[in-house]
């Protein structure tokens, strides 16, 4: 099973992601962090293979956490989750920082699993 950490301040989005991941059969959700700082901590304790992380969160946002993770852990694959529709400076920056892909909100199970399986 591929281990996935969900990072989103939105309870409803996190719940949806966790449900999609846990019902997929080939992924398992190892936890839910509510901001970038928690994500960095949980990356250390839970050792996920993939992190699905919201870009726009209060406290440490997704891009700042991605910047840190890209230096601290070269193995973890980070997929950003955003409502920005695939354009804009944040999207470009995420890709430059090594994000493997971007999931656009709102998403369906097919979109999420297709992106995770392509990693």
């Amino acid at each position: 099973m591929t281990r996935v950490l969900v990072v989103d301040d939105s309870l409803s989005v996190a719940r949806q992601l966790e449900k999609i991941i846990s019902e997929s059969g080939d992924f398992t959700c190892v936890g839910h962090a509510k901001n970038g700082a928690e994500a960095i901590r949980m990356n250390h304790t839970e050792n996920p293979d993939i992190i699905c992380m919201d870009m726009n969160m209060p406290g440490m946002d997704g891009l700042t956490a991605l910047r840190t993770l890209s230096v601290m852990d070269k193995d973890v694959k980070v997929v950003m989750v955003t409502s920005l529709g695939g354009v804009g400076d944040k999207f470009t920056e995420a890709l430059k920082l090594g994000a493997k892909n971007v999931i656009s909100k709102p998403f369906g199970a097919d979109d999420v699993l297709r992106i995770l399986r392509e990693l």
């Binding site: 209060p58 920005l84 909100k105």
Partner: peptide, 26 residues
């Protein structure tokens, strides 16, 4: 809140296509 986020994300994306830089906060 997430519905507002989805709308504003689309607004920011569309504004960006029109050359207007707009960031959105949570």
């Amino acid at each position: 809140r997430e519905f507002a986020n989805v709308i504003c994300g689309n607004i920011a994306a569309k504004a960006s296509q029109a050359g207007v830089v707009m960031d959105i906060l949570p």
